[in-house]
Amino acid sequence: MSIPKKYFRAFQMGLQSAMEYRADFFLSILSGGFIILIQCFLWTAVFASTQNPVVYGYTLPQMISYSIMAGLVAKMTSTGFEWEIAEDIKNGGLNKFIVQPIGYFYYRICCFLGRKVLQLGILMIISLFALVLCKIYLGFDLQLKRVLIFLPFVVLAMVLNFLIYYCISSLAFVMTEVWGVFIAAGQGVLMLSGGIFPLDIFGEGILKVLSLLPFKYLVFFPANIINGRFYPDEILYGAINQILWIVIMLFVSNACWRSGMKKYVAVGG
């Protein structure tokens, strides 16, 4: 089988898997919607209780749109394959990838993108619908050009998140019980990426430190593009940083996996 055909099959497998577990996906959107709902109620109450039209540098429509978009972008970029990788490492499922002419990294990323493509489409429609509602009811300044700029940033964020979790999943080579680390990492990444609150709440100093890390490009940056909080040069700078982080994480994940494979004991082989 030719290389493109081989990995396209992996992509198809991911797509099929997403279609198979569609009920699970919709229910996860529903449960994720609760957090967005809490945030919307919270910020509406905050703005209703103050004379100041701006809180943390956001107006009410911007804050509501941020809360909605942060929740949805976090869902768009979410992974889940790390559990499968840990299972492969623990139970020897990785063995077949060692002996077969298929690269584990390429297989995983193709599966991941296949799984995401359908979800991304649905979440984009939901996002657009929510933003239009924000525009109608809150007077949110929704601009088509921002939406168009937002799209490639989300795709890059997805790839960056994949690489971050691919690195984290390599911990399964050295830890037998890695579930706690995965859950902690998931919540930690969500916090540091601005998935719970905009990073502005941490203050100028911490925001500067967080800007040196890749996480802000997962949620905070794409969500605020929609909000129109960045000038064109800042967006360009953000795009360069995001791509730079993807390249860095590629090298880091490669190094982690190379070192992990040296420790790998092919259980059941």
Binding site: G180, V181, I183, A184, Q187, M191
Partner: peptide, 8 residues
């Protein structure tokens, strides 16, 4: 593992 998770 549980402790790490809960702290986050």
């Amino acid at each position: 593992a549980a402790l790490t998770m809960e702290l986050v």
